[in-house]
């Protein structure tokens, strides 16, 4: 697969095997700058595995993953520079404060971080009054926000999110949706897995991960990234 000029990231023939068991097979796709891509699929179909591979936390059995012209599997150190990742489980240090967690993930100094929290992208998250709070005392929604903020603390061009709104209440889901919209409006690129209709509506395109491979899913005729009936039909067809 050749990378055209607008393509920001592209995956080529990514496969993952655990022993003889194949989890992912020949996954290929391209994402342009500023796009929001959703990956749909049943529970346990390999969405998190795919995101773990694309974020650099898991090695693939084969395949290539390009950021512009650089194959990130060959330069794993570049993953943290270009890709912010929010896994399903919040990657936070529970005993430490909100500020400490942000400080760890932030690329600049502590002073710059405070500026970022009042003026930059992190300002949107409204953590300024909670900076000294231990993470363990935060609600599930706040922890999720903090995880996203930590992933964005380095201002990466791409954000991967694994079910960002799972098990959160309606208002938290709305907040998270708003942060993601803001990130997209700032020129960011998002790849997310989700079962939430609201989150999927943010996406320009969707893919369905089924039978270990990724298939384009968007209802292009209607321009709807998530057609529930179509989704259920496709799942039925493949099961």
């Amino acid at each position: 697969m050749m990378n055209d000029f607008s393509t920001l990231i592209s995956a080529e023939h990514i496969s993952k095997k655990y022993g003889h068991k194949e989890i992912l097979s020949d996954i290929s796709f391209c994402i342009a700058r500023g796009e929001c891509i959703g990956i749909l699929g049943k529970n346990g179909c390999g969405k998190s595995t795919l995101l773990n591979i694309l974020s650099g936390t898991l090695s693939p059995s084969s395949g290539k993953f390009f950021y512009q012209e650089q194959n990130l599997f060959q330069y794993p150190k570049l993953f943290s520079r270009y890709i912010g990742y929010v896994p399903q489980e919040n990657p936070l240090m529970e005993n430490l404060s909100v500020f400490d967690n942000l400080r760890f993930w932030y690329a600049g100094t502590g002073k710059n971080l405070k500026e970022e929290l009042t003026q930059g992208i992190l300002e949107k998250f409204g953590f300024y009054h909670y900076l000294k709070y231990p993470v363990s005392k935060l609600s599930g929604g706040m922890k999720r926000r903090l995880s996203i903020a930590c992933a964005l603390a380095k201002n990466p061009p791409i954000l991967l999110l694994d079910e960002p709104g799972a098990s959160l209440d309606f208002s938290c889901k709305e907040d998270i949706k708003n942060y993601l919209s803001f990130y997209l409006s700032c020129g960011g690129t998002i790849l997310l897995t989700s079962h939430e209709e609201g989150e999927i509506k943010l996406c320009n395109r969707t893919f369905l991960l089924t039978e270990r491979t990724l298939l384009p899913f968007s209802d292009e005729k209607e321009g709807n990234p998530f057609n529930k009936t179509l989704f259920l039909e496709r799942i039925k067809e493949n099961s």
């Binding site: 974020s55 936390t57 150190k77 993953f79 990742y85 896994p87 489980e89 990657p91 005993n95």
Partner: peptide
């Protein structure tokens, strides 16, 4: 007892950081 209790997700994330 909680000091060594690690969030696997955090561990994987810091491995990404080198």
């Amino acid at each position: 007892d909680n000091f060594f209790k690690e969030n696997v997700s955090f561990e994987k994330s810091i491995t990404r950081e080198g």
